[in-house]
Amino acid sequence: MAIFQKKRRNILPGFGLSMGYTVFYLSAVVIVPLSMIFFNAIPMGWEPFLSAVTAPRVLASYKLSFSTAFFAALFDAVAGLLTAWVLVRYRFPGRAVLDALVDIPFALPTAVAGICFATLYSPIGWLGDITTKWNIEVINSPTGIVIALIFIGFPFVVRTLQPVLEELEPEIEESAHCLGATRMQTFRKILLPHLFPALLTGSTLAFARGIGEYGSVIFIAGNLPMKTEIAPLMIMSKLDQYDYNGASAVALVLLVISFSMILLLNAVQEWQQNEYR
């Protein structure tokens, strides 16, 4: 009875149909494919599963994937905020071009990006020349992976921040200045709290993308066991050895960790938003 009443009161038409479509779509595109990982991993039993996911090489790859994705997301948060700010607040010639450039990492095949970075930072590449001189290891090192992931995650931060910045009236800053706040105080006490939820969303997306990134990383990482093997690469190499169960086990752990992190960050955001409504 209650359901019927609710239905009658809903002004927007087509709830049943669109909800049904949404559930079907999510099932077909996300849930069913991902459930294959469970069904592939379950038959192997608890013991082999544990030994597959706690192998030192696998553990090292998890650590590397999560830490590089984290640092890349952190860097993107700062650089993305700056870029979004410039694109929204200032009008200058070439702004449209700059705005379009932000999307390149979305559009480019990741392998292309990987080759670009590998060439750029190779000991004879333009930047590799300099980094070698300064004794900074980029290629075949976690630093290189972070650089590739920064590139991949960058547009997520910019694109989530832009609309929020656009709706933030300049009057807010002006009134803070009139009240005697310095630029730093205005940024810290007024702007940053306002932008924080969007910044968190953007960086979470960049982070999640970074964990799963494969194509652009493997070219620059060098893939040294225990040192520069990322988790997706571990899955690939297990598949190469026809170890489907092992690959699924590694994938399952990756999936569970990523999903719970995203869930947690969403919860933090929800809580943040509700406080001000």
Partner: peptide
Amino acid sequence: FQHYALFRR
């Protein structure tokens, strides 16, 4: 200001 410009947060 005309549109208040209060700090929403």
